[in-house]
Design a protein around this nucleic acid. Sequence first.
RNA 1: GCCCGAGUAGCUCAGAUGGCAGAGCAGCUGUCUUGUAAACAGCAGGUCAGGAGUUCGAUUCUCCUCUCGGGCUCCA
Length: 670
Amino acid sequence: MSDIRILLPDGSERMLAEGSTGADLAASIGKRLAKDALVVVVDGEPVDLSAPLPDNAQVRIVTRKDDDALEHVRHSTAHVLAQAVLDLWPGATFAGGPPIENGFYYDFELPEGGSFSEDDLERIDKRMRKIIEANQPFERFELPLDEARDLMADHPYKRVFMDLAAGQGDEEAAAEADASDGMISFYRNSGDFVDMCRGPHVPSTGKLGHFALQRVAGAYFRGSEDNQMLQRIYGTAWLNKADLDAHLARLEEAEKRDHRRLGAELDLFSFPEEIGSGLAVFHPKGGTVRKLMEDYSRRRHEEAGYEFVYSPHITKANLFETSGHLDWFADGMFPPMVLHDHDHSPGHDPEHPEGEGTKYYLKPMNCPFHILIFKSQQRSYRELPLRMFEFGSVYRYERSGVVHGLTRVRGMTQDDAHIFTTKENMGDELASLLSFVLDLLRDYGLDDFYLELSTRPEEKAVGTDQEWTEATEALRVVAESMDLELVLDEGGGAFYGPKISVQARDAIGRTWQMSTIQVDFQLPQRFGLEYIGSDGARHRPIMIHRALFGSVERFFGVLVEHYAGAFPAWLAPVQVEVLPVADAHSDYAHTVAAELRGHGFRVDVTTADDTLGKRIRRAKGQKLPYVLVVGDDDVAHRTVGVNPRGGEVERNVPIGGFVDMLSADVAGRN
RNA sequence: GCCCGAGUAGCUCAGAUGGCAGAGCAGCUGUCUUGUAAACAGCAGGUCAGGAGUUCGAUUCUCCUCUCGGGCUCCA
């Protein structure tokens, strides 16, 4: 019997008997490694420890210390979930169950259209732990397609996957079924449980155990609305208890920061049922924050050469016919209001005979209005770039299942601008624009970004290939010059052009899509936009659509979560609350408040109707930047006791000293 | 839009095989006059999301609608 040569990551070699497996290799290196090994990566491909190694292979043994260990643990945990469910629900069938970020899921169909309840999760969890305790080995075997189909006779979804995988390279199906060499792979890990699976798996269920089942959900088979809806179970899995606990703690932290919860607790905004789904009202405190956000944005835009415009909320249909929105996105718009001639001024609309009526739409976008402003007069190249800015309220008919707090609404205000520029200037304009965007986002406290370049959608798109390429390249050049990570989002552009979006990571590491910058050759064409060039000829301008906040509502929600409701002093709706120790100090408290207001600060006074401790507790609950306590000493010496958010109490601070403190805070946007 | 779940006082929640609806916090009124995260007492607060049905009787059972939550799909 001849030996095979194995190359290890540290550059060393090892000779093993032919037919040796990853497990043999690990054992030959050390007892500890043999025990810790989960899978092996052979020439870049992860495989089971039980697979024979080829000669001259580059092999890496994956243990729990490696980054890629997690996905295998999650994948194998999903497999145990499937085993538990099929044990507990005779007649249930299953579809796919991949690892995902932080965990895994598995899709099932229960007999007679049944569904899981929250209580079921506990039962399933218990069953899974028994399987793990039993330390069942995952044993791989392969069958030709026809035998594989017989084996999965009761599992139609599995058969769809194997047919797809055997047919052609369907990516999703390939993730479920391995059809290389026309063979379908399976795993068996107890007498009668067999799952079709590409693998690899950890050697046995005993390697698992730090998991939690999280929720049940519906999910379309293979992600298509046309398919059957299956019952999905989500879970999370980790290598050890500490990691699992840390993950669960992160989820709890995120829940505490939920802007919907903080919005109510801090009295910022609400969604009255009477108004309708996805339609928010901002209360005085939320209104103050929003106004501060908008005011600062206005100031910066003014400095950056934008001009301010205003446009109505509704328009006759023809505007969105011309723009193409009614062709492409009528579903996303509120249905039209129809005005009939006889309703109002009979006979005044010769275009629409009696009975037909005139359609008006709520606007889903501002761009056509800004285009009409551009068109209102003949434009010269000397005016370009022309930058029109508007806080424009738009309405979109989001489907009922997708509205979500302030992040997905039906009525919102965009900080929208359209820049009309010459083709020659487009590159420069995009470059300065992107820097402007990032600078401004940083001022609002977000400073960890990456960029995403979205290219032409496969179906919904207008314009020539050349136009798309040109626009996409212009964006790519600018994006690459920014010294930020750039991710490609194939097919994610709008129907009229590609875009760069700025993704920001918040205080607890979640990413949010913030600003978008889109290049558009189409609307200028559709509306016949022109300017007179230096050569005296007519030229077509390029349009750049851009929004920094995206929507003010959404950005507001993101900031609430980023700051966990503790707004920096410059944005805080109430910056200071002054608390007199007793009634005798009320006059002085009001004097202090008046003096602070004189400096432009937002200040409340709460008189001594409750104990000091209680008033402090309440102010802290509102996450105010500063609580001031004033008593006898302070009245005597014109001082205040300063209790800052997240800091130490400081007594006997002169009022002027506190003014300096707060001014510095506001100026530094801390 | 689809699957699952939920809706009881301003908020967080309890409750009953179908028989007059409960607590804490918040609110109001008093007493207390307080030096850094919950003083004490009293009062008020509800078409039990809305509508229809079954029933002697429905907040409870059935159906429909609305709203919210977790997902899927979608997101100009």
